[in-house]
Write a protein that binds this DNA or RNA. Structure first.
Length: 253
DNA sequence: TCGACGGCGCATTTCT
DNA sequence: AGAAATGCGCC
DNA sequence: GTCGA
């Protein structure tokens, strides 16, 4: 697993620990470690193999162990278990202004709110205003925020997805079965806001390319898989479409 | 092995 | 009205 | 959880 992803896992761990009201210093320890690793130029895998992860400031025995597990296996038992205690969508809630760990915990425990969609429903039913610490003002504001936010759902700033797009492009080009690889759509046109990524690959081995694509490290989930077009969701949340065409018809795609 | 790890002020909202 | 809680930004 | 005394 790559450095950025590991940093992301550590940050997520910190967030989830907040939700279960862990020792604030422990929470900060994870945040610190994440920041520290981010700033670390070196190669994590090397460091892990030599058992020298603790040379990174803020990384001690416990976190070093989790990092090696992540580097080696791509998973962390601890993280998986922690994550399983909460619905996946609960992290979305931290993006809403005015909501922090305490409030989110209350929403989750008393109203089983586990996502922004859940929260919207709860607000519309007037349940949120019933909770201690919440009121009508808050409830209305949340509805407004969520509605406003919906306008931008599914769109991303170019800079936010460029790295993923380029990495995917590079890796596709590197695949022996791909004769031509290019991007299309709004990303190719470098529009400031992109809704999804489009890739076109010319190949004599469509099946292999598709397989490679859906199995790529950046891919979060596969939403549709067909002979000529495949759609996936990347870790950043953006949708990416892959079109595979025969080498002969590539110029027209 | 054991204590420290940042703290304060402001804004908003709710509680009493 | 004043106190308290929560979230947030700043030094 | 990590660091330093």
């Amino acid at each position: 697993m790559k450095k950025e992803q590991i940093v992301d896992v550590l940050e997520t761990i910190a967030t989830l620990l907040e939700l279960q009201e862990e020792n604030p210093f422990k929470i900060r320890a994870y945040t610190n470690a994440a920041r520290s690793i981010e700033a670390w130029g070196g190669n994590l895998r090397e460091l892990a193999e030599e058992n020298r992860l603790q040379e990174i400031p803020g990384v001690g025995k416990a976190i070093a162990g989790k990092i090696s597990e992540l580097v080696l296996t791509g998973e962390s038992t601890f993280f998986a278990e922690l994550r399983s205690k909460f619905p996946p969508g609960i992290l979305e809630l931290f993006g809403l202004p005015g909501l922090g760990a305490k409030k989110i915990k209350a929403l989750y425990e008393k109203l089983q709110v586990g996502s922004i969609a859940d929260l919207k429903k709860a607000c519309e039913m007037g349940r949120v205003a019933e909770l201690p610490g919440f009121g009508k003002t808050t409830q209305d504001k949340l509805i407004a925020t969520i509605s406003n936010r919906a306008k931008h759902v599914g769109s991303f700033q170019l800079g936010a997805v460029a790295a993923e797009a380029e990495e995917l492009l590079d890796d596709l080009r590197q695949h022996p079965g791909a004769t031509q690889v290019s991007s299309a759509g709004s990303y190719r046109r470098r529009k400031e806001i992109v809704r999804d990524l489009d890739f076109i690959v010319a190949t004599q081995a469509p099946e292999a390319i598709t397989e490679f694509f859906v199995g790529h490290a950046l891919v979060e989930s596969v939403s549709a898989r067909g002979a000529t077009k495949t759609s996936v969701r990347l870790h950043s949340g953006i949708q990416a479409d892959l079109r595979v065409v025969s080498t002969a018809e590539y110029p027209f795609a």
